[in-house]
Simulated scan of single mutants.
Amino acid sequence: MEKPIIELAVENMDEFNELIKKAQQQSAELEKTLSSIKTFQPKISYPNLERKQC
Rank of each mutant, 00 (worst) to 15 (best):
S45Y: 06
E29M: 07
K22S: 14
L30Y: 15
C54R: 13
K22V: 00
E11P: 03
S36I: 02
I6W: 12
A9N: 06
S27M: 08
E2W: 13
I37G: 10
I5N: 13
L19A: 08
Q41Y: 07
M1I: 01
E18G: 05
F40Y: 12
E2G: 11
E7F: 05
P42V: 01
E2S: 13
Q41K: 15
E18F: 06
F40S: 03
S36N: 13
K32V: 03
L19M: 13
Q24C: 00
E11T: 10
S36D: 11
P4T: 01
K43I: 06
S27R: 12
F40D: 04
S36P: 03
V10E: 11
S35K: 15
M1W: 08
D14C: 01
K3S: 12
Q25D: 14
K32Y: 12
I5C: 11
R51V: 07
P4M: 07
L19S: 07
A9G: 05
Q24I: 04
T39H: 11
I37H: 00
E2P: 14
S27K: 12
Q24H: 12
N12T: 04
L34N: 15
A9V: 14
A23L: 09
L8T: 13
E29A: 11
E2Y: 10
A28D: 06
E2C: 07
S27N: 07
R51E: 12
F16D: 00
A9R: 15
I20K: 14
K22W: 01
A28Y: 07
E31L: 14
Q24D: 05
F16A: 09
K43W: 11
P42N: 02
